[in-house]
């Protein structure tokens, strides 16, 4: 078995984010926040890539991608 573990994390297309905060409300781990009223930012340590924020985002600017840990 390969020792590389794949993890899923949420990524925000910050240039298109409207900072509405819908993602913050649905995140079960409190891993996403709005910085300075400009855009959402994901705490990579806390994010488990569940995808709730991506589903909720009215602008659909959040995507869950696989990352190599």
């Amino acid at each position: 078995m390969s020792s590389i573990r794949k993890k899923r994390k949420a990524f925000v297309e910050q240039a298109d984010c409207v900072a509405c905060g819908c993602c913050v409300k649905v995140c079960p781990l409190g891993a996403i926040r709005i910085i300075s009223g400009i855009m959402a930012q994901v705490d990579m340590e806390k994010c488990v890539g569940c995808g709730k924020c991506a589903k909720e985002c009215p602008a659909s600017v959040i995507a869950v991608k696989e990352v190599t840990a």
């Binding site: 409207v18 900072a19 509405c20 819908c22 300075s36 009223g37 400009i38 909720e56 985002c57 009215p58 602008a59 659909s60």
Partner: peptide, 20 residues
């Protein structure tokens, strides 16, 4: 579209984001 699609183009939201 999505429930809160209005938030994307809400003029108040756009204005407050510009101020921020």
């Amino acid at each position: 579209f999505k429930p809160r699609s209005w938030c994307v183009y809400c003029p108040m939201g756009t204005m407050t984001q510009i101020i921020c």
